[in-house]
Design a protein around this nucleic acid. Structure first.
Length: 766
DNA sequence: TGTGGGGTG
């Protein structure tokens, strides 16, 4: 009994109290007699039915009792005893719960009742791949536990920490957030149990966390880990997390399985492949609206633009239908859903379908047009029809040319099944697949490729290095990335001086890992911090970095393109897009009192607010590192300083003009690229630095700034060491610059070989 | 001549 810390606050006489006394104790104390991690289902159910809430000692509300009754109907609830027993006996559990099992809301609560984290000052964490999911599930569970969100139950996502230290013991969080935390506390000591939810989604962060936790479990025997997944790749997780007892064969991690509770969903396929899936999707939604019984519709499309466009068209067509025959067609409400939508508008998906236009007329219908966020993570009540064109945007990475891009690609069969399942949450439903059954069987991959196999791993490798994991090639991945991808990542980090030649994390690399940005961007920032006294532009680079890390700020409504372009021209700085971004942000800051400023200038107020947020976040990191914020008054000097500072971070993303048709060749890779049409440069400079390479109709470089080639030799001498430079026009151009530079008096006697290992003194060449 | 699925002290 005494080893139960929960009882430590009780008087000794109460601890071993006789039966009669203990019944009065349990009247006031719902968790009386609970032994951490040895709790039985019967005890939990009793505590749940208790008149007092064990966590805040308040009487349970009527709403609590109502929700509890529905919870008791969830499949996972009837297996509580089984779960608690497996939880008591094992350190690592793999759990499979199909859609509708209630795993995401119930398992963390069961764990809380058994683990009693609040009695030992610890937390139970449950990770989610998406922010919306972390927020909405936390709210739901707070309601279920009859506590205020942000108190005993909270969530933690970037920019928003809804937890109260010392009070919160159940925390939903994004997987990326837990990975960030692990960088500062590799032992994750705050947590007594970590639950990785939606593991089947195989996000980059979840995959790395699985590797870390597998390792950590050996060091921290008190840490319990639950890996939850919706589909049946459980065997893979089980063998990955298998137990190795000395002298025994490895035994797979125990499996806890809960059936789903869904209604049957009838699946329809098209007879022929659809040439235009957006058009076909709109047609199908309207067909449902005209001909099918009441019930809401969920349509999956691939991105913001496509979704907004489809919503407009559906609304227009539906209005036509209603105007033509109001007595046979009900009103239709069309709601978009994607992650970059403001949270308030995201909430609209939960609004009820519209009422009939007049009594006796057909009921209204809600149509949610969504990206993959609605595929798992988010449950929308009332969905009866799913329209699945079979596509989503997926990251693809080409390590040869080091380019990561988003490509509209066919989804996997597992994904298609998830989507269909969304139609059967509340009653039997229908799923319309806009592809043929033959394609479903023979063309779709069984599972979505794990993200770790489709990404540029530079960031992940840097994070792992910060976590103290040195042998990245032999890190225990569930699916090991291609060696070339790892090599490219290591090579990039070495060029950026984040890793030294032995692969050890440098102090600069450590600083870079602190910033929640891509290595390129964090490098430019970190390097700028170190060289800021020289360029005196840390304040400006900070702003530019923030602007580069948020979505596009320029709005260009289809019917006001000319006006938008005009507004943009007024803010454009001819030397380069980076300076333009700085100018936009500064103007935005100066016009904070004018609430319509962003709108009047065709700028996204939300993206600018986000940039402000990121800037503040980065500023805090700078302050922690005690680095000064500097800016120079003189605009010409400042712009030059910024251009030079940019080179320190982006020297690998430089292109040289080639011929007269406006095409450029990227340095070393020799890719032929064009300036993106959004580029604001007034001429076509010989040498440019770019933020990103995009592959759309043609290969483009986007966010481009003019530079001087001698700065490349000056600020990135190792990368631009001509003796190791591939032959070509770029090298010849650089050689000319070098020869010219060698003739200059400040560069010595002209006897140096073309190898600029170290610059003694960097002088302002302006 | 025209873009971002999801995530990050």
């Amino acid at each position: 009994m005494v080893d139960n810390p929960y009882l430590a606050h009780l008087k000794p006489s109460q601890r071993g109290a006789p039966v009669a006394a203990s019944s009065t104790n349990s009247d006031r104390e719902p968790l009386f007699g609970f032994l951490p991690r040895k709790v039985k289902g019967e005890q939990v159910r009793k505590a749940m039915d208790h008149q007092l809430n064990p966590f805040n000692k308040q009487p349970h509300s009527a709403q609590y009792r109502k929700i509890l009754e529905t919870r008791k109907g969830l499949p996972v609830f009837s297996q509580m005893d089984e779960f608690l027993e497996i939880f008591s006996k094992n350190q690592i559990i793999v759990m499979v719960g199909e859609t509708g099992s209630g795993k995401t809301t119930q398992i963390p609560q069961f764990v809380a009742y058994s683990d009693l984290p609040h009695t030992k000052g610890k937390l139970v964490a449950c990770t989610q791949p998406r922010r919306v999911a972390a927020m909405s599930v936390a709210q739901r569970v707070a309601d279920e536990m009859d506590v205020q969100l942000g108190k005993h139950v909270g969530y933690s996502i970037r920019f928003e920490d809804m937890t109260e230290p010392g009070t919160t013991f159940l925390k939903y969080m994004t997987d990326g957030m837990l990975l960030r935390e692990a960088m500062n506390d590799t032992e994750l000591l705050r947590y007594s149990t970590i639950i990785l939810d939606e593991a089947h989604e195989r996000t980059l962060a979840t995959d790395i966390l699985m590797g870390l936790l597998k390792n950590l479990a050996r060091r921290r025997l008190d840490l319990k880990i639950i890996v939850m997944s919706a589909t049946l790749d459980a065997v893979k997780f089980q063998s990955y997390f298998s137990l190795h007892q000395p002298g025994e064969e490895p035994s797979p991690a125990p499996l806890f399985k809960v059936p789903g509770r869904t209604f049957p969903v009838e699946v329809f396929y098209t007879q022929e492949p659809e040439p235009d899936y957006v058009e076909a999707a709109i047609r199908t939604v309207l067909m449902i609206h005209r001909a099918e019984d009441p019930g809401d519709v969920l349509l999956f499309l691939t991105g913001e633009e496509e979704i907004e466009d489809a919503c407009r068209k559906i609304k227009l067509e539906a209005d036509d239908l209603i105007n033509n025959d109001p007595s046979s067609v009900g009103p239709l409400m069309c709601v978009p859903l994607y992650s970059s939508l403001p949270p308030q508008q995201q909430q609209r998906i939960f609004e009820a379908a519209p009422k009939p236009t007049q009594e006796g007329y057909p009921p209204g219908r809600k149509v949610v047009v969504s990206t993959n966020v609605a595929e798992t993570s988010l449950t929308i009540d009332g969905i009866v029809y799913v329209v699945d064109p079979g596509f989503s945007k997926q990251k693809v990475y080409n390590p040869r040319i080091r380019v990561e891009s988003l490509l509209v690609s066919p989804i996997s069969r597992a994904s298609a099944q998830q989507r269909a399942g969304r139609a059967g949450r509340t009653r039997p439903g229908k799923c319309f697949r806009l592809y043929t059954e033959k394609d479903f069987i023979s063309e779709l991959e069984e599972q979505t490729h794990p993200e770790i196999l489709r990404s540029n791993l530079a960031n992940a490798v840097l994070e792992l290095a910060k976590l103290g994991i040195k042998d990245l090639v032999r890190f225990d991945y569930l699916d090991a990335p291609a060696p070339e991808t790892l090599m490219r990542a290591l090579e990039l980090l070495n060029y950026l001086a984040a890793l030294d030649d032995e692969g050890e994390l440098t102090p600069l690399g450590g600083l870079m890992a602190e910033f929640p940005l891509d290595p390129q961007a964090s490098k430019s920032l970190a390097k700028m911090l170190i060289t800021s006294p020289e360029f005196k532009v840390s304040n400006d680079i900070l702003t530019i970095t923030a602007m580069l890390s948020v979505p596009n700020v320029w709005l260009r409504p289809p019917n006001q393109r000319a006006a938008a372009d005009q507004a943009k021209a007024l803010l454009t700085v001819p030397e380069g897009d980076h300076l333009t971004l700085l100018n936009v942000f500064n103007n935005y800051s100066q016009n904070k009192s004018d609430r319509n400023w962003a709108w009047n200038n065709f700028l996204s107020a939300r993206a600018l607010a986000q940039a402000e947020n990121v800037r503040a976040q980065l500023l805090r990191t700078m302050e922690r590192s005690e680095i000064e914020l500097i800016s120079v008054e003189d605009e010409r000097k400042r712009n030059l300083g910024i251009q030079k500072a940019l080179i320190c971070g982006f020297f690998m993303q430089v292109a040289h003009k080639e011929g007269e048709k406006g095409s450029y060749l990227t340095v070393k890779d020799n890719q032929v690229v064009g300036l993106h049409p959004s580029c604001g440069l007034d001429a076509q400079p010989e040498w440019v630095l770019f933020n990103e390479f995009v592959l759309t109709k043609r290969p483009y470089i986007r966010t481009v700034t003019e530079i001087r080639p001698d700065w490349l030799l000056e600020f990135a001498p190792v990368y631009f060491d001509l003796s190791s430079f591939p032959d070509g026009e770029t090298k010849r151009a650089l050689q000319r610059i070098y020869n010219k530079k060698r003739g200059l008096p400040e560069n010595g006697n002209g006897q140096n070989p073309p190898k600029l290992k170290k610059q003694k003194q960097k002088k302002d060449t302006s």
